[in-house]
Design a binder for these strands. Structure first.
Lengths: 199, 199
DNA sequence: GTCAAACTTGACGCCTGCGTCATCTTTTGC
DNA sequence: GCAAAAGATGACGCAGGCGTCAAGTTTGAC
C-alpha cells in the first residue's frame, strides 16, 4: 500500500539510517550522539524517538542490515565451490565486490568493528566467523582441505578480508581483482600445500 | 634525583596513564571522558590538567608508548633473520610474546585500532606498516622473497598478527607457539612458493 | 468538507562533562 | 623551622546531550 503516510515513514526511517551510518562511520559509535544523527536530517529531535528508542537501536539495525547481506552473498558464493581454491576465491570475490558496490556500508562497518565485536556480540560479525569456521570444518572432514586450526584460520581469513577490503577501496579504480588474487593465493597456497596442517 | 616531588609526579602520571588505558580499552576512545579516567584514580579532576591538556593527549601518549615498544621488539627480531621463513617467524613470535607479556596494552591498542588509524594517523600503527613494507621491499630486492604486492602483504601480515594476537590471548595458556606457527606457515608457505608473486 | 487519528515539532527539565581558578596543602631550599 | 614555590583540590559557569510531552500539522476515511 502506497499511502502517503507509509511512504514518509519509510523515507524518514531511511533518512535516519543513512545519517546514522555516516555519523557512526565518521565519529565512531562512542562519540556519536543521537543529536549528531538528527542534525544530518531535516527531522526534529523528537521524531527520532518515533523510529528508534535510542542510539543503540539504530546501530543494531545498521549492523544487522549490513552484516546479513554481506554474509548472504559470501556464503552463496562459497556454496557453489568444490575445490579449495574456488572456495576461498569466490568468497573473497563476493565480499570485495560487495564492498565496492556499497562503500558507505563498509566504511561504517570497519570504523566500528570493535564496537560490534564487544558490545553487540550477539550480532553479525561473530556469526560470519562461526559460519566460516563451520564451512572450513566441513571441508576438512570431506577431505578437501588439510586439517588446520579452524578458529585461527577463520579469523585470519576475515581479518585479511576486512583489511584488504579497506586497501582495495583506496585504489583507483577499486582493485577487486588484485585483492581477490592476493587473498586467495595467500590462503590457497598455504592450505593446498598442507603447510598449515596441524601437527 | 629522587625528591619526593619528582616521585609523586611520576606516580600521578603513571596512575593517569594506567587508568586511561583501562578506560579506553573498555569504553573506546569516543565514549571515554576525562572524568571517567580521573574517577579511577584518587586524584581530583583538576589535577588531570596538570599532566595532560585533554583526552587527546593522554591517548596519544598511550599509543606512542605502546607502539614504539612493539615496533622496536618486532623490528629487532626481524633484523637478525636471513631466510624468508625466519623473517616472518621471528617477527610474529616477538609480537605475540609482547602481547602475552603485557595484555593490558594490547587490549587498549586493539579496542582503539580504528581511532588510531584515522584520528591519529601520524602515530604508530601506520609507521609499523610502513616499516614492514620497507623490509619486505628490501627482501624482494635482495632476492630473498618473490615480488609481491608489498602494500597488500604488509597490511595482511599486520591484520593477521592483530587478530591472532587477540585469539591466542584467549586460550589458556596463551598459545604463542601455535599462533606463531600458524601465521608463519600461512605467509611463508605462500611467499616461498611464489604463489603470491605478482604476475 | 470535516474530524479523529497519526505523526511531527521543538522547548523543557534534568544530568553530566568540560576546563578554569581561587584556595588550601605539601615540599624544598636555606 | 620558615617562607616561597609547586602542586592538588573541587566548586563553578558554561555547553550540550538526553528523553518527554503538550501543542501543532498532516493524512485519510467518510
Amino acid at each position: 500500500m502506497s499511502g502517503r503516510r507509509e511512504r514518509t515513514k519509510a523515507a524518514n526511517r531511511g533518512a535516519i539510517l543513512a545519517a546514522a551510518r555516516e555519523v557512526f562511520a565518521e565519529l565512531g559509535y562512542g562519540a556519536a550522539s543521537v543529536r549528531d544523527i538528527v542534525r544530518r536530517t531535516d527531522l526534529a529531535s523528537g521524531t527520532f524517538y518515533n523510529y528508534f528508542p535510542d542510539k543503540d537501536a539504530v546501530f543494531r539495525a545498521l549492523v544487522e542490515e549490513t552484516g546479513v547481506e554481506a554474509r548472504r552473498r559470501v556464503r552463496a558464493a562459497r556454496r557453489s565451490a568444490h575445490t579449495a581454491e574456488d572456495f576461498v576465491e569466490s568468497g573473497y570475490r563476493a565480499f570485495f565486490a560487495y564492498i565496492v558496490e556499497d562503500p558507505a556500508r563498509f566504511a561504517f562497518m570497519r570504523s566500528n568493528l570493535e564496537t560490534v565485536r564487544d558490545r553487540f556480540g550477539d550480532a553479525v560479525l561473530p556469526a560470519g566467523t562461526a559460519e566460516l569456521a563451520e564451512d572450513l570444518q566441513a571441508a576438512i572432514e570431506a577431505g578437501h582441505l588439510p586439517p588446520v586450526d579452524v578458529e585461527y584460520c577463520a579469523h585470519a581469513m576475515i581479518a585479511v578480508g576486512l583489511e584488504l577490503g579497506a586497501r582495495l577501496a583506496e585504489r583507483t579504480p577499486p582493485d577487486v581483482d588484485g585483492a581477490t588474487e592476493f587473498a586467495s593465493a595467500l590462503f590457497v597456497g598455504a592450505l593446498e600445500r598442507r603447510t598449515l596442517a596441524v601437527l
